[in-house]
Design a protein around this nucleic acid. Structure first.
Lengths: 105, 105
DNA sequence: TCGATGCATTCCCTTGCGGTTATATAACTC
DNA sequence: GAGTTATATAACCGCAAGGGAATGCATCGA
């Protein structure tokens, strides 16, 4: 799974993630919040789905979209290479945690 | 300063950051590593500069580019909203650290 | 069975971005 | 001062991505 920077570069898609952070939502709900056309929303949702950032649960004609955080965790891992540049005093602790936690893969 | 997702969406620009993570570099050096034309490299560097991700130090005709991590720290802050979704057992510790560290702003 | 609902897909248009070549600018060297 | 080196800017091109309107498809309710 490649890093989802390009997917997250789109403000509407970040807003979708913010909305899904609260709770799963229907496409119509998201469309209303975004101020986009329904097809526009569906297209963004497809991109998010293919990037693994959301998953769908179908219920009759309705589709509940919910968050899938795994790609964000990968983003976090990418950021980790740079974190020592600003994290300052927590640095030593973080390195210790990184070194001692179980390998997640 | 807006979140630099769109800036980081470009693979060559991420590679520049990776290279600058090791040490400051000249434009020519970066051009060679990237396999781009020199103007192409300069355009990416301009984008990175305007996003605050790099800074330049001029030395005669040469320009040393170096990393500026502040926008990455903002990205990290954005990610923090989602981190509880995957961080699992470290969660409580992280919340404790977030709550007790000095406010950086 | 038929209209309505909820969403996805298609088509089209426009804009922006990354790439290159050519050119400008500035400082060093001789 | 002339040529050279290092980088930036300008001009141009092609393509992909985001946006909307129209349409397709499935499921529900009556």
């Amino acid at each position: 799974m490649p890093l989802p920077f390009d997917v997250l570069a789109e403000p509407s898609r970040r807003k979708i993630l913010d909305l899904l952070l609260e709770r799963p939502r229907l496409v119509g709900e998201l469309t209303e919040q975004l101020g986009l056309s329904q097809p526009g929303t569906s297209k963004h949702l497809r991109v998010l789905r293919e990037a693994g950032l959301v998953r769908v649960r179908q219920e009759a004609q309705r589709r509940w979209y919910e968050l899938r955080p795994e790609p964000l965790a990968e983003l976090d891992a990418w950021l980790a290479h740079y974190r020592h540049l600003w994290s300052g005093s927590l640095d030593a602790l973080e390195r210790h945690l990184d070194a001692t936690e179980d390998d997640p893969r």
